[in-house]
Computed example of a mutant assay.
Amino acid sequence: MTPSQFRATHTDITTWSSADIESYEHLVEGTDPGIARAAASGMHIVGRHAVGAEVIVDYALRTELPGLPPRPLAA
């Protein structure tokens, strides 16, 4: 299912349950190459902007984002 199909099936977003919202987020994350690239590289998306018809995704490392604590080390 694509995000568009999900929205068509679930119509009014104001009536979505928290599970619906979570499901939609996973669909978007799985189909958006910018989000996938950020997740694979450990980067964070800090913004998006358009240049003509192209959407540009702006990334930053966690260490470049003021106020965020360091990521805990994996066990």
Rank of each mutant, 00 (worst) to 15 (best):
M1I: 10
M1S: 10
T2Q: 07
T2H: 09
T2V: 08
T2M: 11
P3A: 07
P3Y: 06
P3H: 08
P3S: 09
P3Q: 07
P3G: 04
S4N: 11
S4K: 10
S4L: 13
Q5Y: 06
Q5K: 12
F6K: 05
R7D: 05
A8N: 14
A8I: 11
A8T: 14
H10Y: 10
H10W: 05
H10F: 13
H10T: 02
T11R: 13
T11H: 13
D12A: 13
I13A: 15
T14V: 09
T15Y: 03
W16Y: 03
W16D: 01
W16M: 01
W16A: 02
S18I: 07
S18Q: 07
A19L: 02
A19W: 01
D20V: 00
D20Q: 01
D20I: 00
D20A: 02
I21Q: 07
E22W: 02
Y24P: 00
Y24L: 03
Y24A: 02
E25Q: 09
H26D: 05
L27C: 05
V28N: 04
E29G: 01
E29H: 04
G30C: 04
G30Q: 12
G30R: 09
G30K: 08
G30I: 03
T31R: 09
T31I: 05
D32S: 08
D32C: 10
D32V: 04
P33Q: 13
P33V: 12
P33Y: 12
G34L: 08
G34I: 04
R37P: 00
R37M: 12
R37F: 15
A38C: 03
A39L: 11
A40I: 02
A40P: 01
S41T: 14
S41D: 15
G42P: 03
G42F: 01
M43D: 14
H44V: 07
H44W: 04
H44F: 09
I45N: 06
I45A: 03
V46G: 10
R48N: 12
R48G: 12
R48S: 12
H49Q: 11
H49R: 15
A50V: 10
A50L: 15
V51H: 10
G52Q: 04
E54W: 14
E54A: 14
V55A: 12
V55R: 15
I56V: 15
V57R: 10
V57S: 09
V57E: 07
D58M: 07
D58K: 08
D58H: 08
Y59A: 06
Y59I: 04
A60G: 04
A60H: 03
A60M: 08
A60N: 05
L61T: 09
L61P: 00
L61D: 11
L61V: 00
T63C: 02
T63S: 14
E64G: 04
E64R: 04
E64F: 03
P66Q: 12
P66Y: 08
G67V: 11
G67S: 10
L68M: 13
P69I: 12
P69Q: 14
P69M: 14
P70Y: 01
P70R: 10
P70C: 02
R71T: 05
P72I: 02
A74I: 10
A74C: 05
A74E: 13
A74V: 13
A75I: 11
